[in-house]
């Protein structure tokens, strides 16, 4: 392989990696928010992402809506689902050991997967063409307009989230609850409401990711959330779990690592290499790339 073609491949792999990583980032944002506030690895998050994709599918394919309204509908419905799950399955366990909540989260995850398999059959579904995919070819590098949309959406959402958390009143409440739940309660913050709100926002983000991915890859099924959910969680940990820019960084890094490993080494060891690098990073920076020893929360 000569140098020019190597450079071109590297460029293309970076594009591939960043576009894949922005999807991980989008899911990881919600993951990291929920973790930041109640220290729960919400394994059901990947399945909310799947539900979001299905809500979007029904809005576009059955109700024949256009892209933006169906995205909003999917986000709203997922937000409600997230709040219901929190209310029914996690709130009663607020004072229980964290591992019990984790098992409940695994239960919720299985329930969502197989419940929806029962409802919508395991057959994959495809989105109608709701927004076009232009393909740009710049000096041999191929770029798809949907990739740009996904990257832009995740960047914007990250900025918005960061703003909400750091500069608004409800964001302040979220940070307070995350920092010290009991003190926040004493200060007159309705903790349940704040947690509920966090779940709503996190789930809406996952749904947005689900709809975008459904359109981009054009195939959704009830088990589609398992692997991206796991990878997004890894991404969130990589960046420093609980930190919003960390989720973005971790997601993109994960995507790039995967693309480079399968592009230049071996595609069979892609996941093994991704996990291996994650473990190495954790060994040298035990609280993630952007994590500090005293973690900044939410």
């Amino acid at each position: 392989m000569d140098f020019a073609s190597f450079l071109q491949q590297l460029g293309q792999q970076l594009i591939n990696g960043i576009s894949l990583g922005s999807i991980y980032a989008l899911i990881a944002l919600g993951y990291t928010m929920i973790y930041g506030i109640i220290r729960l690895i919400n394994f059901a998050h990947g399945d909310i992402y799947m539900l979001g994709a299905y809500f979007g599918y029904f809005a576009t394919a059955i109700l024949k809506m256009s892209f933006i309204p169906s995205l909003i509908i999917a986000m709203v419905l997922a937000a409600i689902t997230g709040m219901v799950i929190e209310r029914a399955a996690y709130r009663p366990l607020r004072s229980a050991p964290r591992i019990a909540v984790l098992i409940t989260a695994i239960g919720v995850s299985l329930f969502l997967e197989y419940g929806s398999m029962l409802l919508v059959t395991p057959q994959p579904r495809t989105f109608p063409a709701v927004f076009p995919a232009e393909i740009y070819n710049v000096g041999g590098l191929v770029l798809n307009s949907q990739q740009i949309v996904i990257l832009a959406v995740s960047l914007i959402l990250m900025l918005v989230l960061n703003y909400v958390v750091h500069y608004t009143k409800s964001g302040k409440a979220m940070r307070a609850v995350s920092y010290d739940t009991d003190a926040a309660k004493l200060m007159g913050i309705d903790v349940d409401k704040v947690i509920s709100f966090t779940f709503a926002v996190g789930s809406a983000l996952a749904a947005a990711a689900g709809v975008l991915v459904g359109i981009y890859y054009n195939s959704i099924d009830p088990l589609m959330g398992i692997m991206p959910g796991l990878k997004a969680f890894v991404a969130a940990v990589l960046g420093g779990i609980g930190i919003i820019p960390g989720a973005m960084l971790g997601g993109v890094l994960m995507g790039v690592i995967e693309a480079l490993v399968s592009g230049f080494f071996s595609s069979t060891f892609r996941d093994a290499a991704a996990f291996g690098i994650l473990i190495l990073i954790l060994l040298f920076r035990p609280s993630g790339l952007l994590g500090k020893n005293v973690r900044e929360k939410v």
Partner: peptide, 28 residues
């Protein structure tokens, strides 16, 4: 020996990753 320096959820994700690495290695 190296991973048990991690704690809590970080250890969890590291062991999860190691389990998957073992499985993928066997797969190949």
């Amino acid at each position: 020996l190296p991973t048990l320096r991690l704690s809590g959820d970080y250890l969890a994700i590291a062991t999860l990753g190691l389990g998957e690495i073992i499985r993928i290695t066997i797969l190949n």
